[in-house]
Design a binder for these strands. Structure first.
Lengths: 329, 329
DNA sequence: GTCGGTCCTGTAAACGATTACAAGAACGAT
DNA sequence: ATCGTTCTTGTAATCGTTTACAGGACCGAC
């Protein structure tokens, strides 16, 4: 004997399927009707089928969250925030890892047309024409956590990393460091490009010259370690700003390996202010780019757009703050 | 104009819906038929609707992964492994956070009856009668990553933490440490209980007495820090084994705060061998309980059971190894 | 008593795919 | 030329819900 369907419940309760459906969805019905249906549901252990329901109402009550790397703690923070908002609204979360390639992102966005989810929240790290086009044409609502041209016509929530860079530099300068190096992630990514420009501008604003700049091949711990020697051979710096926390922690390991003290010899500032920043040692001063808030607001925008797809796209910028810890003097 | 349906494609191609469906599913058809259908699909940009397909074929091609805390890096490792296996098999992954309460887990398992996913991979941290019952009665295949009574009649993949404890102690003793303390997570959880027993047995096997034991309220970094003073006031140890990496890192911070050197004054061993173990400083010697392999094998079992629900349940045990790093002498 | 309005309930038509079944075409063998 | 096979295609039922529509009961007002 297989799962009972709504027809079985109707039969058991001696009413029509429509009445069962109505009771289950809280539409008006007599006391007695509600009672009979609920008893039948109870007895048979009936649970409505999500697949059939989705087909009929055109909604799956699922949302997709697409990130490049689940191992990056900043996405964990974001995911937590998103999950909280969407599950409170009765949605499930489908988490997808896109990897570093833009073609996979495009394929994902196109695939949303299958309708297995009611919306997409994507945090792309590389953006090209194709991606923008696929987002604009996407069958379901999309919200981008990150930077994408306005012509994509889509809600976005992004960080203000130039401002974040300024905060980092101000802090370092205030603590007497002015020979500042920069460890970036890949410059051909959206965050990489933004941070490179932010760093250059912020330095200029303080009338400083860059001492050394290195570029890791990825925003990962391993890539941070690998890229560290590029900075070390250049040398001459008393502080390093890193494009994210993983890179910063990777760098700190290499600094320790060559006997440089943090923050004594070199101050280190990370970005993202992820959980890792307080778990590493010394604890990491980090620019809080508001990942939790970005996640929360992006999720809210997505829910709002699902309710009303005609609202004009909003572009929210979340302001950064600086979490000062022990890696800076 | 809204999304084209299979009927639209059929009309455009001048064939029947059945033929379109057949071509799309690779069933035999003439050269010309294939050609016409594909052109129409191309022209209209038709994408089959996953909701309708699910209803008809009774499959959603989604699997649910339920973990207690996405912030725990061990789950990240596991999730990576699971995602790799299931996406290779054409499934999407729905990630759900259950939190520390068993009632939420039970609700989740019961909710699977809605049929929004074809299977469930759950890693429960507290297990009670209700949970076992709900798992046994679950409408869709379930695989448990963790320890659950055989009577649940379900595939399981679990770690061998007693053996892992032995590895940790052997290592410490070999390095001359024999005043060994233990920082556990909540003892009323499955891993907590297993590790407590494992620790006691392993100590006995080496003819040692426990120096101090503390119990954190959670398997988190913060709980590790909070529980650390319980050990510190007891004192008298030259090594601490921790029930997971987060607790170990939390402890190391507190050790540093009171001026104790790792590994000079105190050796620290973690468990899980998560990414955090090589990111923290000093890098953490950690018992590798095979989270990646557990994830992989659990996913494989789930896929196998979806194919054939009558196979007899398997109970796989993954053997641990020790990753030696700098937190032990 | 009749009429018009509210309610509540049931019947049946969707939603968009897959697939059992039947019918027609093509072809070789007799 | 006829028959039987095989291969391809179309018709229509089906999956399990929701919901538009219509029918019937009930009630109050005239």
């Amino acid at each position: 004997m297989s799962r009972p369907t709504i027809a079985g419940v109707a039969r058991a309760a001696g009413v029509s399927v429509a009445s069962v459906s109505r009771v289950l969805n809280g539409l008006p019905a007599t006391e007695e009707m509600v009672e009979r249906v609920q008893r039948a549901v109870q007895e048979l252990g009936y649970v409505p089928d999500a697949r059939a329901r989705s087909l009929k109402v055109g909604r799956t009550f699922q949302l997709t969250l697409a990130v490049a790397d689940v191992g990056n703690p900043v996405y964990v923070t974001m995911m937590r925030a998103v999950e909280e908002v969407v599950s409170a609204a009765g949605y499930r979360l489908v988490v997808t890892t896109t990897g570093p390639d833009v073609v996979d992102e495009v394929a994902l966005v196109r695939g949303m047309a299958r309708g297995y989810a009611d919306g997409l929240l994507i945090s792309p790290i590389r953006v090209d024409e194709d991606l923008v086009k696929s987002i604009r044409e996407c069958e379901v609502p999309v919200v981008v956590a990150g930077n994408v041209p306005a012509k994509a016509g889509v809600d976005t929530v992004r960080a203000n990393s130039p401002k974040g860079m300024l905060l980092a530099l101000e802090h370092l300068v205030a603590r007497g460091r002015n020979r500042i190096a920069f460890l970036n992630g890949p410059a051909d990514t959206v965050p990489g490009a933004a941070r490179a420009k932010g760093f250059a501008d912020a330095l200029k604003a303080h009338g400083l010259e860059p001492i050394a700049v290195a570029e890791a091949t990825d925003f990962t711990f391993a890539a941070g370690r690998t890229a560290a020697p590029d900075l070390l051979t250049a040398g001459g710096f008393d502080a390093v700003v890193c494009a994210n926390d993983l890179l910063a922690v990777g760098l700190m390991h290499e600094l320790a390996a060559v006997g440089l003290e943090v923050p004594g010899d070199v101050a280190v500032v990370g970005m993202d202010d992820s959980e890792l920043a307080e778990q590493c040692f010394p604890t990491l001063t980090s620019v809080n780019l508001g990942s939790a808030e970005r996640g929360r607001r992006a999720a809210e925008l997505l829910l709002a757009r699902i309710e009303d797809n005609d609202r004009t796209p909003r572009r929210i910028v979340v302001q950064p703050s600086l979490s000062i810890r022990r890696s800076t003097p």
